[in-house]
Each structure stands twice: as C-alpha cells, then as structure tokens.
Amino acid sequence: MTLEILTPDKKVFEGDVTSVTVPGTLGSFQILRGHAPIISTLEDGLVIIKDANGENTFNIKGGVVEVLDNKIIVLAEAVVA
C-alpha cells in the first residue's frame, strides 16, 4: 500500500506501508491492504505507520483520510512535533 500525509504547506510522508492507524472522529481505526474504499474525518491524534523499517508516528491536528485501491491519503490540518 502507498501512503501520503499532506498538510496545506508540504508533503510530510510518502512511501509503502503495511498498515496505518488513524484517529477517526468516532475512534481510531486501522487500514490494511485491501481495505474497502472510505473517506473519513480525523480528530487530533497519532497516525501510526508500520512498514518494512518498523513503526513511525505523526501527531496530526485533525483532517481527512481517503482510502482507494490500496492508496491512502491523509490530508492533515497540521503535523505537530
């Protein structure tokens, strides 16, 4: 699967991943290969990425996630350190 995390001013992450956990408005959920198409709003919280190199996290300030054909796009309002 490919993942892109974008903010209004830059691309924060792009790469192949095995799973992504996002902070959905109704609770966090995990996206795996073959996930059904979805568009969901996101709350402030952690995006947890698992790939061949291990685990990586980004703390986002709300946004939207779209999943379609094993491509995940996270449009975040901001990513905080």
Score class of each variant (00 low, 15 high):
Thr57Ser: 13
Val12Cys: 07
Gly15Pro: 02
Leu75Glu: 08
Ile5His: 10
Val47Ser: 02
Asn59Glu: 06
Glu43Val: 07
Leu42Lys: 03
Ile72Asp: 13
Glu4Thr: 14
Arg33Cys: 00
Pro8Ala: 13
Lys10Arg: 15
Val12Ala: 08
Leu3Lys: 00
Val20Met: 07
Val22Cys: 08
Ile48Asp: 02
Val67Gly: 05
Ile31Cys: 09
Asn56Leu: 15
Ala76Lys: 12
Val20Arg: 05
Val80Gly: 15
Phe58Ser: 03
Pro37Lys: 11
Leu68Ala: 15
Ile73His: 10
Val67Cys: 13
Asp51Met: 10
Glu43Thr: 06
Leu6Ala: 07
Gly54Leu: 05
Ala52Ser: 11
Val65Phe: 14
Ala81Gln: 07
Ser19Phe: 00
Phe13Gln: 02
Ala36Trp: 01
Ile49Arg: 00
Val17Cys: 07
Thr21Lys: 11
Ile5Ser: 11
Ile5Arg: 11
Glu55Ile: 03
Ile48Gly: 01
Val20Gly: 01
Ile49Trp: 00
Ile48Phe: 01
Thr21Pro: 02
Thr2Pro: 02
Ala36His: 10
Ala81Arg: 15
Ile60Leu: 08
Lys10Ala: 14
Val80Phe: 13
Gly54Thr: 05
Gly34Cys: 00
Ile72Pro: 12
Lys10Glu: 15
Thr21Ala: 12
Phe58Trp: 05
Asn56Ile: 14
Asp69Arg: 12
Ile48Pro: 01
Val17Gly: 09
Pro8Lys: 12
Ile49Phe: 02
Gly62Arg: 03
Val20Leu: 04
Val47Arg: 05
Gly27Asp: 10
Ile72Thr: 14
Asp16His: 03
Gly63Pro: 07
Thr25Val: 15
Arg33Val: 03
Pro37Gly: 11
Gln30His: 02
Asp16Met: 03
Val17Met: 09
Thr25Leu: 14
Val67Asp: 06
Val74Met: 04
Gly63Arg: 08
Gly15Ile: 11
Ala81His: 09
Val22His: 11
Ile31Asp: 11
Asn59Leu: 10
Ile73Arg: 10
Gly63Leu: 09
Glu14Ile: 01
Val22Pro: 09
Thr2Gly: 02
Val64Phe: 14
Leu26Phe: 07
Val80Lys: 13
Ile38Asp: 06
Gln30Ile: 00
Glu55Pro: 00
Val22Met: 11
Val79Pro: 02
Thr2His: 06
Thr2Arg: 14
Asn70Ser: 09
Asn56Met: 14
Asn59Gln: 10
Thr41Phe: 13
Phe58Asp: 03
Asp51His: 10
Asp16Gly: 01
Ile48Ser: 00
